[in-house]
Design a protein around this nucleic acid. Sequence first.
DNA 1: TTGTAGGCGTTATCAG
DNA 2: CTGATAACGCCTACAA
Lengths: 344, 344
Amino acid sequence: MSNAMRGKITIKQVAEASGVAPSTVSNALTGKGYVAPETRSRVLETAENLGYRASSLARSLRLQRTWSVGLLLADVSNPFFPAVVRGIEDVLWRRQYNLVLCNTDYNKEKEAAYLRHLLDKQLDGLILASTASDSDDVLELQARGVPFVMLNRRHVSAKTNYVGMDNAGGVGKAIEHLLTLGHRRIAFIKGRADSSAAKERFQGYRAALREAGIRFDPALVAQGDYTIESGHAAAAGFLQLARLPTAIVSANDFMAFGAMARFKAQGIRVPDDVSVIGFDDIFVSALPWIELTTVRPQSWQLGASAAQLLLEQIGRRGRTRPREIILENELILRATTGPARTTG
Amino acid sequence: MSNAMRGKITIKQVAEASGVAPSTVSNALTGKGYVAPETRSRVLETAENLGYRASSLARSLRLQRTWSVGLLLADVSNPFFPAVVRGIEDVLWRRQYNLVLCNTDYNKEKEAAYLRHLLDKQLDGLILASTASDSDDVLELQARGVPFVMLNRRHVSAKTNYVGMDNAGGVGKAIEHLLTLGHRRIAFIKGRADSSAAKERFQGYRAALREAGIRFDPALVAQGDYTIESGHAAAAGFLQLARLPTAIVSANDFMAFGAMARFKAQGIRVPDDVSVIGFDDIFVSALPWIELTTVRPQSWQLGASAAQLLLEQIGRRGRTRPREIILENELILRATTGPARTTG
DNA sequence: TTGTAGGCGTTATCAG
DNA sequence: CTGATAACGCCTACAA
C-alpha cells in the first residue's frame, strides 16, 4: 500500500488548491507561524475538502521524532504481561504515541536484533521488560542517551530508569500473615535465577524470617522456574521431608498451582494440612476452585508508570537523572491459607 | 533521542570517509547497482568501522514502505488474544517486520482514531481483530487498496481477506460428543451479539441439533457476553427451569466457568448432574481443579496465518482477490463431560 | 563502474 | 503576514 494507504494528497497540492505556498499551509495546519485568520481558515477548509493528511513519515524525518516507543518483553503469552502492556498502551494512547511490541523469549540474540532494528527505526524511546540483568546493550543505550525505562527487571550495575514492585515487601506481607496464623515452618519456592524480581522475592523471604527470629532452613527452599511443573516438582521435594512445612510461599501463582496440584494428588488438603500463598494474582487465582491467597502487584499501574516515566524522559530528551518507581503490593486473602496445624 | 538514538552517521559521511559518492555507498550496501568488488569491500569496511546504520525513516520515505504492520484488537488482556498475537509476531519477526499494537476496547471511536493514526504512519498493512462487523472503515480500507486481513471477525457484507476458525464445526464436535454420551437436552450460552464468531457458534449449535433431530428449545439458550458473570447468570437462568438441561455448551470458557461456579454453589455436580463444554481452551481450563472439556482453536496458527496472508498481500501490493483461511478446531476431552443423567 | 541531480513530504529559517 | 529555500537521509535514473 503505502502509495494507496495515504490519500496521496500532499501539502503541495493543498497549497496549490488554496493559492498559497506549502510553508503557509504548514503554518496554518500546525498553528505555529503567523498566518492571517482568513487565509488560515481557507487553507484549513481546502485541506479538509481534499482530505489531506500529513505524512507522519516525512514529518518524522524532518523532526527526528517518531511518536512511537518500543516494548521488549519476554512473551505476551505469559499471563503476567497483558495487564502491564495495557497499562503502557493506555498511557501512550492518550499522548498519541504508538507501541511496537517485541517478544524476545529471553533470547539474547533475538533481543539484540530487535534492539538494533528499533534503533534503526528511531523510536523515541524503549521499555525493557525482558532484558537480562547483565546485558551490555543496556549500558550502550545509556551511553547513547536513548530514553528508556527498565520494567520489573533491574540491571545489576547500571543506574537506570526503573519501574518495579516491592518484591521483598510483598513476600514480607505474605509471611507476616502466615506468622499471625501461627506458622513457623514456612517453605519457599524460588523463581527463575536470572530475574532480579525473583531474587528480591527470595530476599524478602529470608528477611521476614530473620525478623521473626526463625532460623533459615535450606531444606525448605526449592528452586523453580515460574512454571506449573516446577511448582509441582517443588512440592514433591517437600513431600520427601520428614515433616511437611505448614506453609509454602511461592514466587509466583503458577508454581503455587503446581504445588497445590501435587498436594491434591497426594490427598493433602489446602489449607488444612498446608497453607499456600502465591504471587502475581493472575485472574485464575480468583476462580472459586482455586481461591489462592496471593500477593497482587499493580500490574496495570506498573505499565502505566513505565510509560509515563518514559514519556517524561523523551520530553526532556533523556537528559535527566535516572528515576526509580517502586509500587506496593497488596496481599489478597482467599481460601488457601489457614491456621498452622498444631502437629508435634 | 532520535538525535542520539542513531549513531548520527549518515551515508554521506561514509561516502566521504571511503572517498566515493553517496550513491556508490548506497549501491554497495544494498547490493543493487554495479560496484567494483574492491570499492565495495572498502565501503563496507568503512561503514562497519564508523558504525553506520541506514535510517529506516529516510528509507521508508523514499521507498514508501515502513516494514511495520498494525494490529487492532479489543484487548490484549483477554486471554484469547496473547497466543494469537504471538503467532502474528513470530511470523513478522522472521520477515523483519514490526508490529504496532492497538487496543480498541470494542470502542468505535477509539478504533477509528487508531486507524487514522496508523494510516498516517503509512504502515504496510493491518490486521483487524476487533472491528465491528458492520464498520464502514473496513469498506474504506478496501476502496483505498490498503492491504489488510480480518481476524476472527468477519465483515457482514464486504468480501475481505479473512482468517478465522470453524466456529460452527467446533460447536458441532462438542454436541456430537454430548450426543454419544446420551444427552438430548443440551443448552447453549451465547456470546457477544456483535461478534460474527459468536453468531457462527450459535448457528453451529442449531445446526447440530437439527441434524440430530432434536427440536430447538429457546428456553435452553441464554445470552451471555463472554464474561464469567454472564455465564453465572446463564446458569442461574437454567436453574429456574422445571428440568435442568443435562448438558451445556458455552460459547467460551469464561462463561463455562461462571456456569460451573453457579452450579457448584448450588451443590449441583459436574459432570454427574450436568455436563459442561467450553470454547477456547484457555490454559486455565486444563488445571486440575477445572479440567474443562472444551473446543480448542489453533490460536497461534490463527495469528501466524493472518500475518502470512497479510505479508502476501503486501508483496502483491494488495491487488489480489480476497482470500479466506478457516482453521479447524479440536475437541479436548477432560473431566466436565459424562453420560447423560437418566432422569425421568 | 562511478558520480550528479532530483525527489520522497515535511518544517524551520529567513527574506520579502 | 507570506513565500522561497534548504534540510531531514536515503534511493534511483541517468549522465559521465
